[in-house]
């Protein structure tokens, strides 16, 4: 018998004798008992933190803010872990929390988005795809500046498909918009990036 070091009530220790899967109030918890609760949380961190951070960083723009948002996301995840019925859907569940947190951060930041609709008016050649765009995407800081300029609705759709990796159908469900809108927003976001990358490249060189 060994005593465990002090209290980590939310951080279960090694064992639970004949518990808790046999209790009606606990059986619905992810994969059984308190130990697995912590194990599930740890796995959610280890498996998803990097991708979630990338999403948050691209969404809120600032490195420190992205970490704050991610901390909030995981604390909320820990608190409501009991509501996660199927640990296999943990990634999508985490992203749902993260999107909500990012949206709140963006609202608080009171940024004035520049409508990507204006990009449609940009003259032809700037919006056409080309190998130069692939090269220009290599400047990650410039890319972030442009994401910061982008309408958050388009940015969110782009990141949901391109970073989270959801299909347009899944993204439509997650964002509560029609599938066609997901595709349209991704298209407009990419068009915006393409044109602005070229404009900035011309201005800065």
């Amino acid at each position: 018998m060994t005593a465990q070091p002090m209290p980590r009530p939310a951080h279960p220790g090694p064992s639970t004798p004949d518990e808790p899967g046999d209790r009606p109030g606990v059986s619905g918890r992810p994969a059984g008992g308190p130990e697995s609760r912590r194990a599930i949380y740890d796995r959610l961190v280890r498996d998803n933190a990097a991708t979630l951070f990338a999403f948050a960083r691209r969404m809120v723009g600032e490195h420190a803010a992205a970490e704050d948002v991610l901390q909030e996301t995981y604390v909320e995840a820990w608190r409501s872990l009991d509501s996660l019925r199927d640990p296999r859907s943990g990634r999508a569940w985490l992203f749902a929390i993260l999107r909500h947190r990012c949206a709140r951060w963006v609202r608080k930041a009171s940024r004035r988005p520049r409508a990507t609709g204006a990009v449609a008016d940009v003259a032809g050649s700037l919006t056409q795809p080309g190998p130069d765009v692939v090269h220009l995407l290599g400047d990650r800081e410039r890319l972030q500046r442009l994401l910061d300029e982008m309408d958050p609705r388009f940015r969110e759709a782009l990141l949901t498909v391109f970073v989270e990796g959801l299909t347009p159908d899944e993204a439509a469900k997650a964002l509560d918009i029609p599938r066609g809108t997901v595709l349209s927003r991704c298209h407009r976001a990419r068009t915006f990036l393409r044109a602005r990358l070229r404009v900035l490249d011309r201005e800065e060189t």
Partner: peptide, 13 residues
């Protein structure tokens, strides 16, 4: 090509 590069660039954090 651009979609692949965008995907890579966005995730490169």
């Amino acid at each position: 090509d651009e979609a692949a590069a965008t995907r890579e660039a966005l995730a490169d954090v």
